[in-house]
Computed example of a mutant assay.
Amino acid sequence: MKQLSLDNLRTFVTVVDLGGYAKAGDILGRSQPAISLQIKRIEQQLAAPLFSKQGQRHVVNNDGLKLYKTAREMLALNDGIFAQFQPSGLKGRIRLGIPSEFATTLLPSIVGQFGKLYPEVSLEVTSALSKNLLSAENNNQFDLVMALIDPQAEVEGQLLLHDDLVWVGDNSVPANLEQIALVLAPEGCMYRTRVINTLKQQTQQWRISYTNADLTGITAAIKQGLGISALAKSSVPEQLDIIKHKHLPSLGTIKICLFTGNTPHPQACAKLAEFIRSKLQA
């Protein structure tokens, strides 16, 4: 019976996460040829190439993306088993910065499980606009920051996901989409900027009917029929619906990235980053 090596799968996942063999080798402490041999071993077992060559870069292909999700799940199961039977050894305080919509939809599923596995690690969470979380004045305020980035921007953070920016509303409260009423976060929000810039290029009328920095407030306003909004697809709460209509233009995509600061607790920080990555990409 064929068996995939978890070590090879971990190397594969690291290559995809970091975007290259050399970067993965630096993290894993292996040479680039050694990384290449591990990837070739998986490709031979599966009889399928997992990367395409673009110039000097190895870019994951469709087969690689299919394997990536399953590989992450296998590694999470493996690591979870060891975590249950070994003292975590992780201690300290992790200062996490996260956009408010993800603090509402993503963070609750992480906090409980992470707290049970690593009870001596305390989380201090700050919710704010990505722009503020990454500002120079907050440079030393966080150990880990999850932020939304324009897809064209080159950043040092670790890419978690290319996500669609989608229109959201409440199907039980039909909206007038010929004259669009918008429920948006304040100035500085990437969603707000993208929505306004996109609608300015269209012919239909629009107006901002309500502004609120918190996803709970935005959701409540939408449920009351004050208008529609836009969110990253992975952050849409259960109470809202993704809506599509001929009067609603495409909003494109965004990048969701993780940024690690100069933390005194790198192991705990790396483990929290792993939790966030696995939940977001599930």
Rank of each mutant, 00 (worst) to 15 (best):
A220V: 04
N138C: 01
A230F: 06
V125F: 04
L161E: 04
Q179T: 15
S127F: 00
T193N: 14
S127I: 00
W167R: 10
G227P: 08
S130E: 13
S234C: 15
Q152W: 01
Y191K: 12
G227H: 00
A175M: 07
A221V: 08
A213H: 12
P237N: 08
V183T: 02
G227Y: 01
L199C: 04
I208C: 15
G157C: 04
N138H: 07
N176A: 15
Q202H: 01
G112H: 11
S135P: 03
V145F: 12
D214P: 00
V121D: 02
E187F: 05
E156P: 06
L177K: 05
R192T: 06
T219Y: 00
G225F: 13
V236T: 14
L133I: 09
S130W: 15
P174H: 04
V145L: 10
S122Y: 09
L123C: 04
D163C: 03
D163H: 13
W167F: 07
L177C: 10
D163Q: 10
E178S: 13
G227Q: 04
M146G: 15
V155I: 11
V168K: 00
A147P: 03
S234V: 14
W206C: 00
P174E: 12
P174F: 01
S172Y: 12
I228M: 10
Q152H: 11
Q201I: 08
A181V: 00
L165I: 11
L123T: 05
A153N: 05
I180T: 13
C189I: 05
G169W: 11
P151E: 05
A128C: 03
L117Q: 15
Y210S: 00
K200L: 09
L215F: 10
E156C: 10
L144H: 10
A221K: 03
G188T: 06
I222Q: 09
L123R: 03
T216H: 09
D214G: 02
G225I: 03
Q201D: 08
S235K: 13
Q204P: 07
I218V: 13
D170A: 14
L160M: 11
S229Y: 12
A175T: 04
I218L: 15
Y118S: 02
N132P: 00
W206L: 04
N176V: 07
P119W: 12
Q224L: 13
E137P: 01
Q239H: 09
L144Q: 11
L177Y: 12
N171K: 15
N138D: 03
K131H: 07
I149K: 06
S172W: 06
S172G: 09
E137G: 01
N140F: 02
G217K: 03
E187G: 00
Q179N: 15
T216A: 11
N212P: 05
V168R: 00
I196P: 01
V166N: 06
L177A: 13
N138V: 00
R194N: 09
A230P: 07
F114R: 00
N171T: 13
P151D: 01
Y118N: 11
I208N: 08
R194T: 15
A128T: 00
G225K: 03
G227V: 02
P186K: 06
L161W: 00
L226N: 09
E156F: 05
A230R: 08
